[in-house]
Amino acid sequence: MRDFHYLEPRTVSEATAMLADHGEEACVFAGGTALILALRQRMMAPGVLVSLGQLEEMRAIRFDPKEGLLIGAMARHNDIARSKIVRQHYPVVAEMAGGLANPQVRNQATIGGNLCYADPSTDPPACLLALGAELTIKGQHGARRIPMDEFNVDYFTVAMEPGEILTQIRLPPPDQEVTTFYRRHLRTPAEHRPVANLALAVRNRGGAFEDVRLIVGAATPAPQLLDGVQDYLSGRSVTAEVAAEAADRAAEEMFPISDGRGDEGFRRQVVRALTRRLVAEAANLDWKETE
């Protein structure tokens, strides 16, 4: 690992000022799990690391009935998984965070670091997207909020400008009529990272699906909203046949990545299976019975 300066700002504005001062030389350091690997493998060689480790304000997790859930970007995955607030209002998020990677990484890595690094083989983006997350990003000249839909641009690329810091993730107050389902799939049980994941938010009104949000992650360069499948499912009474049709459409609509964990065809097939299962589950159908 090459040498670098390590700076520890005490406030967010101090942090953004430091980033502005050091320009392209600087890199934000959150939990460090991904960044240290990149540094060790010499994929990156920043001259300055601006650590957010001392920004206690960015660790907080709180709930406001009007605003919803506010998660500080420096909250670690285990902070989220174990938070009583999260478990009470957004159990699907707690479960997602508690199953991510492994216990050690959940104690080190932060939700903000995870989102900004934008490695596709991870769990949070698809799940948060399904819940309509909104992100607060601060730069030297102020803060802005963007919907999660606009955040992930591509493989390892997000809609942030140099010098900006992701400070908070907001999930709107839960709509009691909307249920969110989330599932990750590992290529083999021994895998550490998902080959695909799927999040489905749905309002089940008298057997018919409404306000459907279906997002595939980990199998695509960035989490992908499956508009076509959403449209297909909207207003429909879900039967096993409908779930199977939605699954085929999901597999068709996605733009899969292809790597050592699985080629395009495999990823489409896994997403097909996940879609059928989640849609069936949302409609209280047993997906295990028939093919």
Binding site: Y6, G32, T33, I36, L37, G53, N78, Q104, N107, Q108
Partner: peptide, 15 residues
């Protein structure tokens, strides 16, 4: 670290 298990190969001493 403060009671939480972490991987020391993914941590900096300075942290």
């Amino acid at each position: 670290v403060d009671g939480d298990v972490v991987k020391s190969c993914l941590s900096l001493a300075i942290q």
